[in-house]
Simulated scan of single mutants.
Amino acid sequence: MPEPETAELAITELSYNALAGQNSPTTLRFTAFVRGRPIQVLVDGRSTHSFTQSKVAHPLDLPIKAYPRLTVRAGNGTTLRSEGLIRQLPVKFSTHSTTLDVLVLPLFGADLVLGVLWLSNLGPVVFDFRK
């Protein structure tokens, strides 16, 4: 992802499910790894960007680029102040590795939320919601 422009981050939203760490029909949860540490991932079709918790970023000493005025609108109506952006966060899924640009937020739910910007890079996605 290129350096984010102010306009690109102007509408940044985190769904209530992602904020609270709750499952819903629009989310999928699984385990991934960052620097060998297991993390809980929530794929959320109602969040705009990808987010990680401060409590994940700091112990792993991940470099955070500050965006001092960046706020994220949460699904419960509040706004959260982002600590900044981690560029090229290495994430290992069960059989796949990737790097992600993620915003750092004071979350309490999942360790990593993958939003619509990440989903849009996948192309068509088929998901059996009964299973």
Score class of each variant (00 low, 15 high):
E5N: 12
H96S: 15
L117M: 12
A10H: 11
T79W: 11
Y67R: 13
Y67L: 15
F129P: 03
I64M: 11
A57S: 11
P59F: 07
V113H: 02
Q88D: 15
T12E: 08
R46L: 14
A32R: 05
D111A: 11
Q40N: 03
I86V: 09
L107S: 04
L14M: 02
T98D: 14
V125R: 04
V91L: 15
T12S: 14
I64C: 03
V126Q: 10
V113D: 01
L105R: 01
Q53I: 02
P59N: 06
K65G: 10
A20K: 14
P25Y: 05
N76R: 10
R81V: 04
V72S: 02
S120V: 09
A74F: 01
V116R: 11
V125E: 10
S97E: 14
V34L: 09
L28A: 14
R37V: 14
S54H: 08
V126R: 10
L112F: 05
V125N: 05
T6H: 12
F51G: 01
F108Q: 13
A18Q: 05
V43P: 00
F51L: 04
R130Y: 14
A66W: 06
L89T: 05
N76C: 08
T6Y: 05
S94G: 02
P68A: 09
G21C: 00
D44Q: 13
S24L: 01
S47Y: 04
R81G: 07
E8W: 11
V41W: 00
G115N: 02
G36Q: 09
F129Q: 08
A66M: 06
S24Y: 02
T27S: 01
A110H: 00
D61I: 07
G123F: 05
T6L: 13
T6P: 02
V56R: 06
S120G: 10
A18F: 03
E8V: 11
V104S: 00
P63D: 12
R73W: 09
